[in-house]
Design a protein around this nucleic acid. Structure first.
Lengths: 274, 274
DNA sequence: TCCAATTTGTACGTATGTATT
DNA sequence: CAATACATACGTACAAATTGG
C-alpha cells in the first residue's frame, strides 16, 4: 500500500518513512570510551518523536511510522523502539491501537473557564457529556497554617476537606480537592456530593451566592497518589487549576485545586476592550 | 487516621522530624524473592515528600527535614536521600540552599491573563519587572496542514515562525513560539523583536487592532529541546498556554504556544454575572 | 467466509557495560 | 580483584487485532 519513490541515488525508499522522518540521528557513543555518556537509545528516540509532535510536524490523530519502520530508520531493536514509544504513551502524547498502529493522541475534553467561576458540572452539562462523581475522601479537620491563610480563617478552625474524582465514560478525567470554610457554611458535611454539585450545596448552606473567583494555573508531575487517582503515569504532566472562591460579601468559601488528567485542557476566551 | 493535631507554630521548627513526618514507611521487598517489585527506594521517598507538599502539609518556603534527619527517619543512606531530593528539585518543588537546608520552592512570577489577550510585555511592565527578550529562532516557511488550519490560510501559504525566550534577572522564564499570518501582516519579518513587542508590530504591520483571543491551557513534559531553552530538567512539567489571536475583523493573525518554566503560573479573575 | 499482510502485544533468551559489594 | 546485581540493547518467536482482497 505504501507508494515508492525513486531517489536520486537510484534506490527505492519507503514513502512513509522518508516523508515523515527528517535527518535525525541516534548517538551510540555510550559504549565507546567517550567522555560524555550519551542518553539511552530509547530516550533519544523519544526525544526525536516528541519534538515532531511539539513542532506540529505530526498532527493530532495522525499515524506515526510503525515500529518496524522506526527499527530500520534508526537501526534499533524493536524492544528499544517500543520502550521509546511507551515513554510517550505514558506522557499522554501517543496512543497505541492494536493491529492499526500508533497515533498522536487526540486532545481530550476542553473545559471552559474564565468567564465565570469554574464549575465542572455546569460546563460538562453544556456539552451534553455524562459524568460520574466519586467522593474519594471527605473529612473535617483543623485548618493548617496554609489552609487557614487561604480561607482567611484562624489556624485551627474546623474546615472540611473534600476530594472528588469525576469520570466520563468510566474514565477518570479530573480530581478536585477542596478546602471548605465551614464557618460560612455549616451543614455542608451532611451533603451527598455524588448527587448535588458543590456550588449548589455551598449556596444552599451559606444562603448566599457565589460571585468571585481567583484562578491560578500551573503544571506539575502527577506523582504516585494522583497518578493512581487519575489512572495515569506517575511521571506524567498534569494541569492544575487552583481556585479561591468568594461569596457576594467577599468571604472565602472554598479553596480548591483541580488536577486535570493529561490530555484534558481548559479554554478561555478574551476580548480586548476598546 | 486522617485527623491531625495542630501543634503550635514554633514546634514545627523545634521538633522537625516528629512534627513534620507522619507514619510513612519504605518498602524494601526489592531484594527479597517477592512477587511484586517495589519501586526504587529514592523514588518511594520522593513520593512521600511530594505528597507532603501537594497536601499543603509542608507550606511554601518552609524548611524540610535535613538530609540527616531523613536518613535516620527512614533508615536510608545519604546518597539515596539526596537522590530523592534531586528528583523533586528537578521538578521545581524543592530548592536547596547551601549551608541552610532544603526548602519548599516559592512560586515564581504570576502572569495575569484572561481579562484581555495575553501579552507578556504588558503584564510584566505592570509589575515593574525588567526582562530581556531573545529571538531563538525566526524563519518564513510554507504552512503545514496543522498551522494552516489554525491560521485559517491555505496549506503551503508562507507563514512566519518566531521563537522568543523571555528572561527575568538573567533566568529564562518562558518560551513563546508563534506562527504568524503573513497574508494579513506583510513586512513583519523585518521587525526587531528584541525591541518592539510582537503585539505592537502586528498592529503596526496589519493596520488593525488586536481584539479577540482564544486561550487553551494544558500541561506537558518539557522534553530535551524546551528543557534546554528554559534551563529546566527534561522530565519537568511545564505549563502551556496556546493562543489564537484575531484582529477586529476576526482574521487570525497569530497562533502561539507559550511554555512556562516550572514554578511560573498564570492567574485570572472571574466574576459571576448576576 | 476465508486468507494473507500488517501491526501491535507479549514472552523469552543472550550479550555487554556499569555499579556495588 | 572477583562476584553479584542491574540496566541497556539486540534478537527471536508467537499471539492477537485490523484491514483488504
Amino acid at each position: 500500500m505504501t507508494a515508492r519513490v525513486l531517489k536520486s541515488e537510484g534506490s527505492f525508499i519507503d514513502d512513509a518513512s522518508s516523508a515523515l522522518m527528517g535527518d535525525e540521528t541516534i548517538d551510540r557513543s555510550r559504549h565507546a570510551g567517550d567522555s560524555k555518556p550519551s542518553p539511552a537509545l530509547h530516550v533519544q528516540l523519544a526525544d526525536i518523536i516528541r519534538e515532531k509532535i511539539y513542532g506540529h510536524e505530526w498532527g493530532s490523530n495522525s499515524k506515526i511510522p510503525s515500529e518496524h519502520e522506526l527499527m530500520v530508520r534508526f537501526d534499533l531493536a524493536r524492544g528499544t523502539v517500543r520502550r521509546a514509544i511507551s515513554l510517550l504513551v505514558d506522557e499522554g502524547l501517543l496512543a497505541r491501537r492494536h493491529g492499526k498502529g500508533t497515533f498522536v493522541a487526540e486532545p481530550g475534553i476542553s473545559h471552559a473557564a474564565g468567564a465565570r467561576p469554574f464549575s465542572f458540572a455546569a460546563t460538562l452539562h453544556e456539552q451534553g457529556k455524562d459524568f460520574v462523581t466519586r467522593v474519594a475522601d471527605a473529612w473535617v479537620t483543623p485548618a493548617s497554617p496554609d489552609v487557614a491563610r487561604e480561607l482567611e480563617v484562624a489556624p485551627g478552625t474546623d474546615v472540611m476537606f473534600l476530594r472528588r474524582v469525576r469520570s466520563v465514560d468510566g474514565e477518570p478525567i479530573m480530581c478536585q480537592e477542596s478546602w471548605l470554610n465551614l464557618s460560612e457554611c455549616p451543614g455542608l458535611p451532611d451533603t451527598d456530593f455524588t448527587q448535588e454539585p458543590l456550588f449548589d450545596a455551598v449556596q444552599r448552606c451559606s444562603g448566599r451566592k457565589i460571585k468571585y473567583s481567583h484562578m491560578h494555573y500551573c503544571a506539575r508531575i502527577a506523582g504516585k497518589e494522583h497518578g493512581e487517582l487519575l489512572g495515569c503515569d506517575e511521571a506524567a504532566a498534569v494541569l492544575l487549576l487552583e481556585q479561591t472562591i468568594r461569596l457576594v460579601d467577599k468571604k472565602v468559601i472554598e479553596w480548591s485545586t483541580t488536577w486535570f488528567k493529561p490530555g484534558q485542557s481548559v479554554v478561555t476566551d478574551a476580548v480586548q476592550p476598546d
